[in-house]
Design a binder for these strands. Structure first.
Lengths: 340, 340
DNA sequence: ACGCGTCACTGACACGTGTCACCTCCCTCT
DNA sequence: AGAGGGAGGTGACACGTGTCAGTGACGCGT
């Protein structure tokens, strides 16, 4: 244990110049020693003196100054919105961050609070990130993409329902999820379908295309579709169940396993038989969905792994020339259980 | 819409010097105009010329250079580990990030992959954050704290089971959660208690103190405690249920609502009556816990809100003199339902 | 004695920004 | 005619780092 620094407040952080002064060498030497620069030869005694001085002062290099000088950084920007996303999504998000860290990137989360799309893009560009991974529900225009590119972003990748011009895209077709659920219900003989639309704001990016998907599947078979707004709490679910018979529905897509389970339980408590009177289908294939009785039918979504996406980022960063690719990676399929 | 820049690759990002050249003024003027500096008077025609030049070039200031010059930034560092945390925790985490953004901080997530505590602290200090909020399960030593302070961090806040020297702490006493659950089971006449320990690595920070809590409550009443390792999947749960009668337990704390529900369902499927033969208690008070039958008894954890923590961060940043405070903010209480 | 090469190290510049002190007009007052 | 002063703007420095081009000392061969 070396001597502790004298005071922690007020005194500015030690710089390489301080280290140089204490070690009795030039600042350049300090830089060479601490970065282990191969092309320059420094004697062993000097190396030791520098290292000891750095240790004693508690010297830590200044990342901003370093990357300013270097002209580039290894920062990946992840714009985020304030939406209550499900466990599937948040697992994906954590995986992505962790994988990027493993590849030696610095992950910066940046929320765009009350800015429009281009304002937000400017704010992101100020950080000069080497890559930007936009997770759908955050808006991004072609103008914004161009701005990011000019500010040095090697890779701009959008993950979401549709591709944005000029970016690599990981398209996750939410329409398909709805289509599969709708087709499944129709196939099981249902003709009057409800579709749960979460009352929580911010989820429209997912819920609207899913509704469209159900509509498409239903129309092809002459079935009708009714959207049902629902907040994720017990009271509204009970209220919805209480007027269920008036709605006259024989099948419902619950948006989500979580919303589907909430509704299914409320229906059962209101005396509606599932699946006999009304069939229920969710999506995400969560473990909890298998714990209720009847077990919940669901649309399994095989989301791209966070690690896989991180590798795409890394590849595009290292070969910036590559033309924008469109990866269609969302293998979803119905898992039929007892609720439908 | 202004003219698009000629080429997006290769050409370096435009600087304020480029803007100055194009507008035919000095760089200082550009700075004054774009920052709306009040103390300096610039004529309106000049202002417009500068703004137009900036717009045409797609100029965006360089955050690193700016904060290098300013000597400080508004970056809050959130070290993260790669652990599968529950919905309660991840909601808290999102709230925190969003609230910090609203207070105009830049949130940077930084994982410490395969480093020891002090190495990690050094890596964080390189970014010169104005505040560091360590979320428990990330290690942080007094030495590391000192290093961060010296590198300019006004606030170092730890959220977790115990306080680290020299930091503001938000102590979340996981022991209490276990104690409450244990006391509840004992009170309901149970004497041979199981405690689920998640098989997934990284959750020991929560599970071990909770186990200790149950132990404390049990010993006080002459009850016995058996830890039960369990992965969050159906097969291991079934296997555990199959040998349940051999274990001879009449009560179990499921670590979590999720694990508790998984186990409860497996027990029921194996013909064990809940709560008659074995009482089950979870924690977190998730909505799904109320959907199973019997409805799950649980320990409600009133976690500090993300917004509240963000305000603490902001306060400490603005008044760096304040002595380390220890906030004990974890109001947990038992919610008795039908599973116990 | 002189050139040459190697070793160990240093001086100086550049990165992009904010800001302080100064400078030049030009108008006005005495 | 000279002093005073404000309006509008510029030159130069500092922030902390990495790195290129030198520079002196020293050993060695001729």
């Amino acid at each position: 244990m070396s001597q502790s620094p004298k005071q922690s407040a007020g005194s500015p952080a030690p710089t390489s110049a301080d280290v140089a002064r204490l070690a009795g060498v030039s600042r350049a030497t300090v830089s060479y020693v601490l970065n282990n620069t191969a092309a320059v030869r420094i004697s062993e005694p000097t190396r030791r003196r520098v290292r000891e001085a750095a240790e004693e002062l508690g010297y830590v290099p200044h990342a901003a100054a370093r990357s300013l000088r270097a002209g580039h950084s290894r920062m990946v920007l992840l714009p985020t919105a304030h939406v209550p996303v499900g466990p599937l999504y948040s697992r994906f998000f954590n995986e992505l961050q962790w994988a990027l860290r493993s590849l030696d990137y610095t992950v910066v989360q940046y929320g765009s609070v009350g800015m429009d799309a281009d304002e937000a893009a400017r704010a992101w560009a100020e950080l000069r990130p080497v890559a930007v991974v936009s997770l759908g529900h955050v808006e991004l225009t072609p103008t914004g993409v161009e701005l990011l590119r000019r500010s040095g972003a090697k890779a701009v990748i959008t993950v979401g329902p549709q591709q944005v011009e000029g970016t690599h895209a990981l398209v996750m077709d939410q329409t398909r999820v709805g289509r599969l659920a709708g087709a499944h219900l129709v196939e099981r003989g249902r003709r009057r379908l409800g579709v749960v639309m979460p009352g929580e704001p911010g989820l429209e990016v997912f819920s609207v295309p899913r509704l469209e998907g159900v509509r498409a599947a239903a129309e092809a078979a002459g079935a009708t579709v009714v959207p049902l707004s629902l907040r994720y709490e017990e009271e509204p679910a009970g209220a919805l169940a209480a007027r269920w018979r008036d709605l006259d529905l024989d099948g419902v897509f619950g948006y989500n396993d979580e919303y589907a389970m909430l509704l299914m339980r409320a229906l059962q408590d209101a005396g509606i038989a599932v699946p006999e009177e009304t069939a229920v289908v969710g999506s995400d294939d969560l473990v909890v969905g298998r714990l209720l009785r009847p077990r919940l039918s669901t649309v399994h979504i095989d989301m791209v792994g966070g690690g896989e996406l991180a590798e795409l980022v890394d590849r595009v960063v290292r070969e910036p020339g590559t033309a924008p690719e469109r990866h269609e990676r969302l293998d979803s399929y119905v898992v039929h259980r007892e609720s439908s």
